[in-house]
Amino acid sequence: MDALVNKRIKQVLKGDQNAYADIVNLYQHKLYQICYRMLGNKQEAEDIAQEAFIRAYINLHSYDQKRKFSTWIYRIATNLCIDRIRKKKPDYYLDAEVAGTDGLDMYSQIAADEQLPEEAVEQMELQDRIQYEISRLPDKYRSVIVLKYIEELSLQEISEILDMPLGTVKTRIHRGREALRKQLNNL
């Protein structure tokens, strides 16, 4: 796959824009999934995942082909997600109309430190509950937990994606697991 990706990248760099379609095709689901798990909202996830592909395209000349393309583009996506989370923080609110149309989207509208009533949480479907618990994690733990348990990446890859030392990644995963454990057992 790396050989194909590098071949397509060279074509894009030579001006063949259509060659980029294969790259989007290969990574779209992974990238969208990261964004969705980080943001908890389909519309925002699509928006940010598209933005990540566009930024990667614009900056493709700066990508080092000796390294993994996935690492590079995941990094662009996680950075955009973290930016988005930080920007929208004061705007959290619970919108009854949104809640009525899409259960998953509802939970993303709730502040990270704001908790739903115990009863409501217990009645959630498993998948909704997982997304709800992930979205309650502080963003520095959320990113490592998503990359480790949803994307199933190695600690080394996570350290490269987030551009932080391996030790910091480990500490964050430990704390993220503890935070999740407390969320799940504090009901």
């Binding site: 999934q33 498993l126 998948q127 997304q131 618990e133 992930i134």
Partner: peptide, 17 residues
């Protein structure tokens, strides 16, 4: 956390990008 289902990008995603 590991029991989370895999999420797929919507079908028009590639064309939109």
């Amino acid at each position: 956390v590991k029991s989370a289902t895999h999420i797929m990008a919507p079908p028009h995603f590639e064309a939109n990008v």
